[in-house]
Amino acid sequence: MDTEHLIRTLAADQDWRSRPAGAWLTVGLICAGALSSMIFMMTLRVRPDFMAATHNPFFDLKFAVTLSLAIPAIVVGLRLARPAAPLGWRGWLLVLPVVLLAGGVAVDLSMPQRLSWGARLVGSNSRVCLVAIPALSLPVLAAALVGLRHGAPTRPALAGAVAGLLSAGLAATLYASHCPDDSPLFVATWYTLATALVTAAGALAGARLLRF
């Protein structure tokens, strides 16, 4: 087929309008979020003292950290799905959870506490954390990759990694309401490790699935 013919054919298909990646991502994240929440409620569930725990600033900080990871990652991911669109200030948003967590750790270490810092870091639930966050993030990661596939990420591994960050952030938000460990030291260690696993998986999957 010569190029002239191809061009005419593409022009004939001109009135087909694809929906933006943002629309796919929104619908996908809602569905996957619902699925992950269902799995969460059937297996781990919200911790029994949830209402009382909300008075503990360290408990609340967990949600601030996970959401300040997930929401900027959505913004950055959508930007990466547009060729030649500079990231600009958006990339800096991803520093937010790091700053919040570092602040939390500093306060945690500076306060006199019942348990030693080592015990707070190791916590009581680290293995569950390392399994639950990646497991709960899988449906979300799949949805995020499908959504980004409707865009045109020219850096597929990076876009996949950001999809990993956003899904780990959302999964960790769910898990945080179950997790009995509230110390920022615990969060900085185990949540970060779990997030790194999901991010690496996202980068690997993205490099294969997000090419267009």
């Binding site: 191809l6 060729p83 045109a152």
Partner: peptide
């Protein structure tokens, strides 16, 4: 040309077209 056609919804129509086109072509 096929990629330009199938991905043209990712072009932001307030931005110039050429950088987008060349990013697709480079890819």
């Amino acid at each position: 040309l096929l990629a330009v056609h199938l991905k043209r919804h990712t072009w932001d129509n307030t931005a110039p077209f050429a950088p987008w086109l060349f990013a697709i072509a480079r890819n």
